[in-house]
Amino acid sequence: MKKYLYVVKTQIITSMAYEFNVYGNIIMQTIIMITSAYFWKALYKGRDMVGDVDADSMLTYVIMSSVLSVLLITNVERRIERSVDRGTVATDMMKPINIFGVYFAEDIGNILALFFQNMLPIILIGSLMIKVPAMADIRDLPLFIISVAESFLINWIIAALFGMMAFTAFNIDALIQVKKHLLRLLSGSIIPIWFFPPAVQKVLGSLPFVYIYQLPLSIYIGRGSRAEYLSGMKIQFLWLLGLSAVFFYVQSRVVRKVMVQGG
């Protein structure tokens, strides 16, 4: 465990070095936040409630979605791709440490670095330019935190599974982009899926993506009852279990494959 904590620490140091990336993301998220805010303001003109949510909560949703997107930045896909490409996977696997554990620790370190560099500025900009994104009911905070932790894990596992495709020797750059944008669309991070037709909602509700963004954000803005949150989190947890199982299975196969075919 201590090893992995050290990896986290090292990654924080590394991430601090890339200032340009950090500012780039703040600017991008600001643009997304502001345009979304204007979009929702226009949509709500003359109406109090759309889809059980008032305009004010929707603006909170927009800001928190940007904040959450920082937490859900993963580097594992590119990390795997790069080490397969450079041929360092094999030597990485030589070390008495699990490489996927290392990748996970690196992503944690990266996010910890981004907490101050990215998340706080985005909250600040959102508060100044749009509104203060206060939580609807502070008593739901534990539920919110747990669901965010689970969505982080689900998101990471999906990213790692994508990254492992790099082992079957093709370029996954384009695929990573497709996944990234598809995920933002299907998870309700930009447009909550309660604005979609009921049939589409039903389909998306059975996929893991809405449990990454929409579920924790709904808890935050107080859309729905506590019973609904809990049933949502139950499905979220089942997805987490299922995806973890797939992940561990694929991981062991990938390690074996590298061992047989060489890095």
């Binding site: 050290y6 990896v7 090292t10 070390k95």
Partner: peptide
């Protein structure tokens, strides 16, 4: 720093 990391890993 690379060495320190290895120190912890091993």
């Amino acid at each position: 720093e690379s060495f320190e990391l290895l120190k912890h890993i091993y």
